[in-house]
Design a protein around this nucleic acid. Structure first.
Length: 908
DNA sequence: TCACCGCATGGGC
DNA sequence: CGCCCATGCGGTG
C-alpha cells in the first residue's frame, strides 16, 4: 500500500508517505495521510488511485490544468463536508481552492469556483475569527490550509458525539448544538459556505483569510409576523422568530443567490446537492434529511420563464402513512414552523400549494397537540399525491416562490437511480425500495465490489436496521476500514458478507418485517422483495467473459474492480398472450417506453430504442408506446403479482399445495396457462430466463441442454467459475439455514421423544415444513404420519446437506420426483443427517476447495448419511457446471430464501 | 361497515 | 431523557 505522493499543499509539495493511518478521519473512507513536512492531512481519496486504479482518479481542470478530485466515493464526502456544494480543490492553486467537484456531477472536471475568491489562498491558516455578525471568518497564519485535510483533522479531533453525528448527517455542527464541537470557527466555515451559494472569500495575502458569508438562499419565513403564538406554545422562542432574527442578520438578496448560482453555473452539469435551508432556523436546526436537494435545473423548471426565484425550503420522504389513503402528510415540525404560516389553533388554516405543473392545491395545514408539542400535518393531500403518482419512499420538496411567497411542491421519485450525491439517509432508503422493485436498470451500475457505492449509499440511511448494519459493513464512508479486517477474521468473502447480511436470523427478520413498530418506508413484501432482488441482482452481476477485473488489494483483501458493471443483461418481463404467443417487454433506458421483443432476444444491460435496429417501427424513442396505460399497468401488475407470489412461500411458510412454486408458475407462464390476471392480455409474467433461448449466450444457454459436454472438475472457464461461485453462495446460505433448523429440530426433539403423542409427531413433521397446524391431520394414521414425516425430513436433510439431488436450480416441481427415490429411514438418522455439517459433505465430495472459503465449523463425527446416495447423484465439481439440472430453472439458486422447493408440500 | 378524525403510543434518535 | 414522528386505534357519524 505504501507509496509516495506529493503533498497537495501548493506551497509545500513535499513527497509524503501514504502509509495508512487507520482510525483517523474515518468518515472519509477509512484513513488519511499526513504530509510529513507541513502536516497537511489528506484523506485517502486524494490517492484515489487506490480505488480507481485505471485512471488514478484524477481529472484535470479545464481552466488551469490542475488536477482535481475524481469524484470517487470517498471524495464525495468532501462535498458533504464543506458545504454540499463544493469541494476544496487542494491541487488547484489557480482556482484558489474551492471548486465544484469534478466527477460525479461535473464530468468536464472544470474548476467552477463555488466561492468568489479574492487573492490567494493562504498556505497556512491556523485559527479563524468570526465577527459578531458571523459574516466574516478570518484565518490567521498558524493553521494549515483550509483544505480538506484540515477539516478532516478537525473532525477527527472532534468528540465522538458530534463526530458520529457529523458522519450521520454529513454536516458540521454549530456550537451549542448537540455534540461537542470544539472549533466553532471552522464549523462556521462550513455552515457559512453551505448557506450561501456564492459567498465571497477575501484572501489576505497569505497571512489570513477572510470569508464573507453571502446572503442566505432566501428570505425568512414570510408567514411569520414574529408574534408569538397566542396559545403560548413555545412562547419563549417560537421557531419562526428565529427566522425573524435571521432576517435581520442575513438580509434577503435582491435575487435569490440560488438563482445567481444558476446563472453562474450555466453550461456545466448541475450538481444535485442538498441545499441547506434558507432561513436561520433551518440553517441551525433542521435536520439535514430535510434539506432540499434539488438541482438548479429542476428549480428552473419550476420557476419556468417567470422572474420568480424558487427557494427550496425542505423536503420529506413520504412515509407509508403519508402516501396512504389517510390523506395526511406529516410535516416535520421544525420545517412546518419555519416555513409554513404559524398556526395557533389545531384546526390550522388552508394552505395553497402549487405543484410543479402549476396546479394549485389547497391543503389544511394543522397540527395535533402531542406530548406538550405539536404534530403538524397537511390534510387532504391524497389527490395531489395521486396526481403526482407518488408513493411511499418518494420525496416531496417544498419550495417557495419569491417574491410572491407562494408555496410550491415538487417531488422526486424514488425510482430515480441513486446518484452519488444522494446521500441523505431517508431519501436513500427509498431509493432502494421502489426503484428496485421492477424497474430495470437500477442495479445496472452495481458492480459487485467497486461500484457498490450507490447501493450502499442507498442502504446507508435505510430504516431497516439490518440494511443499516449492512451498509455500515460496506460503506467506506461509514468510516471504519476495520470492516476489512474484521471480516477477514470472520472469513467472510465479499459475497458472503452480503449474504450474511441477507441471512439475518429468521427471528430477526420476522421481527423486523412484521414489526408493527417498524419505521420501514417499505412494506413487508417490498422488504422481502428487496432481498430477493438483491439475490436477483447477484444473478445479473456476472462478470463478462471478456472483462478482466483489476485486483486491488487492501489490507490483504483482494477487491475485484470492474470498469464496467458486470451486468448480465437487462431485465425484462416475459409475457404469454392468451393466444399462446410469447413475448418479452423491456423498458428503454432513454425514453422509458416499454418495447416488445421476441422472447429469444437477450438485451444488453443498457438498451434504448435506438438499439432496436431489428424493428424499424420501434427504432426510435419517438415511436409511440404500444401499450396503453392500462395494458402497461396490467403488465406491471402481473409482473408484481408474479413476484409477490414468488415471495409468498417465504413470507408465509405454510406452503399451499396448489402453489407449486416458482417454476410451476413460470412454466405456466411459458406454457400459456392463465395464471395471471385473467382479465388482462398478459396472462402471466416472469423474469425467469427461458430455457435455452436460441442464440442466447448466457450461462444457461451456452451449456448443452442435458448432461452432455460436462466440464471437467478442474475447469476454470467462466461458466464453471460462475457456477462454482453460485454454488458456494448457495451452500453458505443453506448452511446458515441448516444451523437454524438444527436448533429448531433439537428443540422439538425433546418434545417428540418425551411424548409419543402422534399429534406431536405430526407437529414435528409440520415443523420440518414450517407448518404449524396440528389439527389438520388428525385423521391420519400413525404410519402415514410417520412415513410422511420421514419423507419430509429426509427430503429436507438431503437438500440441506447437499446430498442427493443437489440442484443449484432446485425445482419445486421435482419434489415429487425426489420423493420417489427417498427410502424410509428412521427419524433419528434423519435428525443426524440434519447435524451433518456442510463441510463434511464437501470433503466427502471433493469440494474442499469450496469449503476452504467457507466458515470453518466443527465437523460432525457422524457418518454421512447414505440416503442421498440412493439418488445416485453425487455432486462434484464436474457436476456443477453441467447443465442437466441447471437447465431446469436458472435463477432459483438465488431465489426465495425459504426455498419452497426444499420444503415438502403439505399433503392434501 | 366504513371513512374520517383526533389523539395515543412507542421506537428511534 | 426528551423530542420527533410514523402509525395505531378508538370514537364518531
Amino acid at each position: 500500500m505504501a507509496s509516495s505522493k506529493t503533498c497537495m499543499n501548493v506551497l509545500c509539495g513535499t513527497p509524503i508517505s501514504t502509509e495508512w493511518r487507520k482510525g483517523w478521519a474515518l468518515q472519509c473512507g477509512g484513513s488519511a495521510v499526513l504530509c510529513d513536512k507541513c502536516g497537511s492531512a489528506y484523506e485517502q481519496s486524494i490517492f484515489c488511485d487506490v480505488f480507481h486504479a485505471k485512471d488514478s482518479g484524477w481529472r484535470e481542470c479545464n481552466k488551469c490544468g490542475k488536477r482535481l478530485h475524481c469524484g470517487c466515493i470517498a471524495s464525495r464526502c468532501l462535498v458533504e463536508l464543506l458545504d454540499r456544494g463544493g469541494v476544496i480543490c487542494i491541487g488547484c492553486a489557480k482556482c484558489s481552492g474551492v471548486n465544484s467537484m469534478a466527477g460525479d456531477g461535473n464530468p468536464n472536471g472544470s474548476c467552477v469556483p463555488m466561492l468568489d475568491i479574492v487573492g490567494e489562498r493562504p498556505s497556512t491558516s491556523a485559527d479563524c475569527q468570526i465577527d459578531s455578525e458571523r459574516k466574516h471568518i478570518q484565518f490567521d497564519n498558524n493553521t494549515e490550509n483550509i483544505g480538506l485535510g484540515h477539516l478532516l483533522q478537525f473532525q477527527n479531533d472532534d468528540t465522538k458525539g458530534s463526530f458520529e453525528q457529523f458522519k450521520r448527517e454529513g454536516i458540521l455542527l454549530h456550537p451549542g448544538e448537540s455534540g461537542n464541537v470544539h472549533s466553532p470557527k471552522l464549523n462556521e466555515v462550513s455552515n457559512g459556505s453551505s448557506q450561501a451559494a456564492k459567498p465571497v472569500i477575501h484572501a489576505l495575502a497569505q497571512t489570513n483569510l477572510s470569508i464573507t458569508l453571502g446572503s442566505p438562499l432566501g428570505s425568512p419565513n414570510p408567514f411569520s409576523d414574529g408574534v408569538p403564538d397566542e396559545r403560548g406554545y413555545n412562547k419563549a422562542s417560537p421557531p419562526f422568530q428565529q427566522g425573524l432574527r435571521s432576517r435581520h442578520l442575513l438580509p434577503k438578496p435582491p435575487k435569490s443567490t440560488l438563482a445567481q448560482g444558476l446563472e453562474g453555473s450555466m453550461g456545466i452539469p448541475q450538481i444535485c446537492v442538498a441545499r441547506p435551508p434558507a432561513e436561520g432556523r433551518g440553517r441551525n436546526q433542521l435536520l439535514p434529511r430535510y434539506w432540499p436537494r434539488i438541482t438548479d435545473q429542476e428549480l428552473q423548471q419550476i420557476s419556468g420563464d417567470t422572474n420568480s426565484t424558487i427557494v427550496p425550503l425542505f423536503e420529506k420522504v413520504l412515509s407509508a402513512s403519508d402516501a396512504g389513503r389517510i390523506g395526511r402528510l406529516v410535516l416535520p415540525k421544525a420545517c412546518a414552523e419555519a416555513y409554513f404560516p404559524p398556526i395557533s389553533q389545531p384546526e390550522g388554516l388552508p394552505l395553497r400549494i402549487q405543484d410543479v405543473k402549476g396546479k394549485e392545491w389547497v391543503f389544511q395545514f394543522r397540527f395535533w397537540p402531542n406530548n406538550n408539542s405539536r404534530m403538524y400535518v397537511l390534510e387532504g393531500v391524497t389527490p395531489c399525491i395521486q396526481s403526482m403518482q407518488l408513493q411511499a419512499g418518494d420525496t416531496v420538496i417544498f419550495s417557495r416562490m419569491d417574491p410572491e411567497g407562494k408555496l410550491v411542491m415538487g417531488f422526486r421519485k424514488a425510482s430515480k437511480p441513486i446518484t452519488m450525491q444522494e446521500t441523505q439517509p431517508s431519501a436513500i432508503s427509498n431509493g432502494v425500495h421502489s426503484s428496485e422493485s421492477f424497474f430495470p436498470g437500477v442495479f445496472e451500475n452495481l458492480p459487485i465490489i467497486s461500484g457498490y457505492s450507490g447501493l450502499l449509499q442507498s442502504l446507508k440511511g435505510s430504516n431497516d436496521p439490518h440494511l443499516n448494519a449492512l451498509s455500515k459493513h460496506f460503506n467506506p464512508n461509514s468510516g471504519d476500514i476495520s470492516w476489512l479486517k474484521s471480516e477477514k477474521h470472520d472469513d467472510q468473502t465479499r459475497k458472503g458478507l452480503l449474504l450474511q447480511s441477507l441471512q439475518v436470523p429468521e427471528k430477526k427478520r420476522l421481527r423486523n418485517i412484521g414489526s408493527k413498530s417498524k419505521r420501514l418506508l417499505i412494506d413487508n413484501l417490498d422488504a422481502l422483495e428487496l432481498r430477493l432482488s438483491w439475490e436477483e441482482a447477484q444473478d445479473l452481476l456476472c462478470p463478462p467473459l471478456s472483462v478482466k477485473p483489476s485486483i486491488v488489494t487492501i489490507d490483504d483483501h483482494d477487491f475485484e474492480e470492474y470498469e464496467e458493471p458486470p451486468v448480465f443483461g437487462k431485465r425484462s418481463i416475459f409475457v404469454v398472450r392468451s393466444t399462446g404467443g410469447q413475448e418479452q417487454w423491456a423498458q428503454c433506458d432513454s425514453c422509458s417506453k416499454w418495447r416488445r421483443f421476441p422472447v429469444h432476444i437477450l438485451l444488453p444491460p443498457k438498451w434504448a430504442c435506438g438499439d432496436n435496429s431489428l424493428d424499424q417501427s420501434r427504432y426510435s424513442c419517438s415511436a409511440p408506446e404500444e401499450l396503453t396505460p392500462s395494458e402497461l399497468e396490467n403488465l406491471l401488475r402481473s409482473h408484481i403479482d408474479f413476484k409477490k407470489r414468488k415471495m409468498v412461500p417465504s413470507y408465509r411458510p405454510i406452503q399451499e399445495h396448489e402453489s407449486s412454486g416458482l417454476d410451476a408458475l413460470a412454466n405456466a407462464a411459458i406454457l400459456g396457462d392463465n395464471v395471471g390476471d385473467p382479465g388482462t392480455t398478459a396472462v402471466a409474467t416472469t423474469t425467469r430466463h427461458p430455457r435455452h433461448r436460441p442464440g442466447c449466450s448466457c450461462i444457461v444457454c451456452i451449456q448443452p441442454p442435458s448432461g452432455k459436454g460436462k466440464h471437467k472438475p478442474t475447469c476454470t472457464c467462466n461458466v464453471c467459475m460462475t457456477v462454482k461461485r453460485r454454488f458456494k453462495t448457495l451452500m453458505m446460505r443453506k448452511k446458515k439455514r441448516q444451523s437454524e433448523r438444527e436448533a429448531e429440530i433439537a428443540q422439538r426433539n425433546q418434545q417428540i421423544w418425551g411424548s409419543k403423542d402422534e399429534a406431536e409427531v405430526d407437529s414435528l413433521s409440520k415443523h420440518a415444513s414450517l407448518h404449524l397446524d396440528p389439527s389438520e391431520n388428525e385423521t391420519k394414521s400413525t404410519n402415514e404420519l410417520e412415513s410422511k414425516c420421514q419423507n419430509e425430513n429426509s427430503l429436507n436433510k438431503l437438500s440441506e446437506t447437499g446430498q442427493g439431488n443437489l440442484d443449484l436450480n432446485s425445482h419445486p416441481d421435482r419434489v415429487d420426483e425426489l420423493r420417489v427415490g427417498v427410502p424410509l429411514v428412521s427419524m433419528t438418522s434423519l435428525l443426524q443427517v440434519a447435524n451433518l455439517p456442510l463441510e463434511t459433505y464437501l470433503k466427502q465430495n471433493g469440494l474442499t476447495s469450496l469449503m476452504s472459503e467457507q466458515e470453518v465449523g466443527s465437523v460432525s463425527p457422524l457418518p454421512p448419511q447414505t440416503t442421498g446416495d440412493s439418488e445416485g447423484q453425487h455432486l462434484d465439481d464436474s457436476h456443477l457446471p453441467s447443465s442437466n439440472e441447471r437447465e431446469s430453472s436458472e435463477g432459483e439458486e438465488n431465489g426465495d430464501p425459504s426455498e419452497p422447493d426444499l420444503s415438502p408440500n403439505d399433503p392434501q
